[in-house]
Design a protein around this nucleic acid. Structure first.
Lengths: 219, 219
DNA sequence: CCCTACGTTCATCACTCCTTCACATCTCCC
DNA sequence: GGGAGATGTGAAGGAGTGATGAACGTAGGG
């Protein structure tokens, strides 16, 4: 369940938004001023923050700036001022969206969903890129110069290990421990077999043998 | 035909609005106080509610709040007070629009149509499209190249999960947690059974098995 | 109350792919 | 260049994984 932190100095507004978001299936927390907001951002670890511009202690812009210093959590700013200038200032500081009061809570829910959807799309790219190789563990896919090749789960783990530090030499027992599990009891030659299969799929020239030691990915 | 519930403590106002809305082609019902309004909201199942702020038994804000706890039916608030503050309170509580008395009945009809148009637009948008698949969770419908297929609630949740990020591989336990609930204690093989049924309905080629890991929707 | 639809489980079959082996090939060192 | 050891490779076996149809239990509706 996605978590939303609501920051507004008006308890009534907090309560209303809280109820709407909870009803829409979100886990929620509220904070009434900037200091509490920063604390809650740490302790509650929200997936998204709804942040009012006018706040006691620290104002919304300050909170936004401080959050952005350490985190990239999506932020939706609420503001009573509707001039272009304010919109710009909010967006420049890293808000993902903003809403001008008054607004219907339903619209907020829609924005929250839109922003989370956008964020989720961005987040799904912990692809490992090494030369012509692009490895996407979350999709279990490997691309060689944009050509899609299918690899098995074991081959993928092996390739990811090698690709995280291209050029570094891994001994067979290291590779076995990482790709086949700490408790692997088989022969080192098993790794050879997997390397053979990987070479056939990604191109033999990309995986180098270091005689007497192990294998490495060519940089 | 769209259904509109009119809530006002003044029978004359009710009658006037009723006549105008009926003439504009709406099915109507009226309620004279907050309690009757809540009951009518259940029994009449309106597509939209016109709600006066000043009411006996429960006032308009209370009614709005109670309705919103369980429903997202569009609400237009009527009020004699015209200060910004009241506008804010109404919108924050979930009204979709508001009208300050006195107003012309014709204007109300226009607002009703605008709000219903907006609501219709929002409602039809959460379709998830992935390749030839179109999934409409709110209608529990799935289309495969415009061919309508019926799926069960569980199959739908499973398909929605997969379709939100096509290509991403989901482990069985992830799918079970999302589609069957956090507290699901059953076997992973249950997912297999649902996947089998889904494949039969949407086409086996659209759901790929990732050996040793789980399933994914082909992009 | 029965019936239907659905979710879950089980047993069985089919398949993938990990592992091993045997032999060929290569590297290094003498 | 020759030998010993290390690595490459194709094939085969088998453990583990997935697919499938049927059976069971249950909840909801007529």
């Amino acid at each position: 369940m996605r978590r939303v932190l609501i920051v507004d100095d008006d308890p009534k507004v907090c309560e209303t938004l809280d109820r709407y978001l909870a009803h829409a299936g979100y886990a929620t927390a509220t904070a009434l001023d900037g200091a509490k907001a920063l604390e809650a951002a740490r302790s509650f670890a929200p997936d998204l923050i709804v942040l009012d511009l006018m706040l006691p202690v620290f104002d919304g812009l300050a909170v936004c700036r401080m959050l952005r210093a350490t985190s990239s959590v999506p932020i939706i700013m609420l503001t009573a001022k509707s001039t272009e200038r304010d919109k710009l200032a909010g967006l420049e500081l890293g808000a993902d969206d903003y809403l001008t009061k008054p607004f219907s809570p339903r619209e907020l829910v829609a924005r929250v969903e839109a922003v989370l959807r956008r964020a989720a799309k961005q987040e799904q790219s912990p692809c490992i890129v090494a030369g012509a190789l692009t490895i996407d563990p979350s999709r279990c896919e490997v691309r060689v110069s944009d050509e899609l090749v299918t690899v098995t789960a074991t081959e993928l783990r092996l390739l990811v290990t090698l690709a995280k530090t291209p050029g570094r030499v891994y001994r067979r027992d290291e590779l076995a421990r990482i790709a086949l599990g700490d408790d692997f009891e088989g022969l080192d030659r098993t790794i050879d077999a997997h390397i053979k299969n990987l070479r056939r799929k990604v191109g033999a020239e990309r995986i180098a043998t270091v005689f007497g030691i192990g294998y490495k990915l060519v940089a």
